[in-house]
Design a binder for these strands. Structure first.
Lengths: 121, 121
DNA sequence: TTATGAACACCATGTTCATTT
DNA sequence: AAATGAACATGGTGTTCATAA
């Protein structure tokens, strides 16, 4: 029946990581899906991390389902016809709460990695 | 055909993490599967990470397939009959090489997490 | 009951396809 | 071609079952 699998509690998942960035980027500037993807790929290139477009859209859709973001379809800056999907907050309190949770997850993940570096080298 | 999927390069995987610990623990003392599991669970309890037994065995079997470790069936210390499986190195150079690779992976993962903490908080 | 292992099922994520502009 | 989205496929990992001592 409604049996749920409990995670082992290893490092945080990519999906959650992307959702965190999406919230922060929405706080800072107006961006749409593929533009966000470009920016993240650029930022993380030096780290060998290259997210794919599907994963990013899934993260976006998660945030919408959770009532944190909503879509706003608008003409892309500078163009005449191309419509793109921007995002804005529906419930900023929820967004902040999510960020707080993720802070804990990041700290925890960092601690696990640091312990491994200490224990094995 | 032999199409392989390329990873996005996010954080390191649990399996690799466990393999690293298995190598280091084999360097230090004679242990068998479930004992290793107990120890790891104890060590990572404060971090909310609790690996399961199957994943640990899979990591062990990986190392065997890769020619790094081999099994040695022995009577469990202090008991008369219970046979358990200990491990020893087949190719210690390979083991060291793997550790070197994982060091890079851990550093990379740590850097990604630290960047996220810096970017989002 | 402890120990090892494999089978199985589910979840996370990468690849491909469809549609629109 | 750029953008969004969904369908599909595969890989990672948690749960369950089998077997032995």
């Amino acid at each position: 029946m409604g049996e749920k699998r409990k995670p082992s509690g290893f490092l945080l998942k990519q999906r959650a990581f992307l959702k965190l960035y999406l919230i922060t980027m929405t706080e800072k500037k107006r961006l749409y899906g593929l533009k966000i993807l470009d920016e993240l790929r650029e930022e993380f290139r030096p780290f060998g991390y290259r997210p794919n477009h599907s994963e990013l859209y899934k993260a976006l859709h998660d945030l919408i389902k959770e009532g944190i973001l909503r879509q706003v379809k608008r003409k892309k800056e500078g163009t005449e016809f191309q419509e793109v999907v921007y995002y804005q907050f529906v419930d900023y309190e929820k967004a902040k709460k999510y960020k707080r949770q993720l802070k804990a997850e990041l700290d925890r993940s960092k601690a696990i990695i640091e312990k491994a570096l200490k224990d094995n080298y």
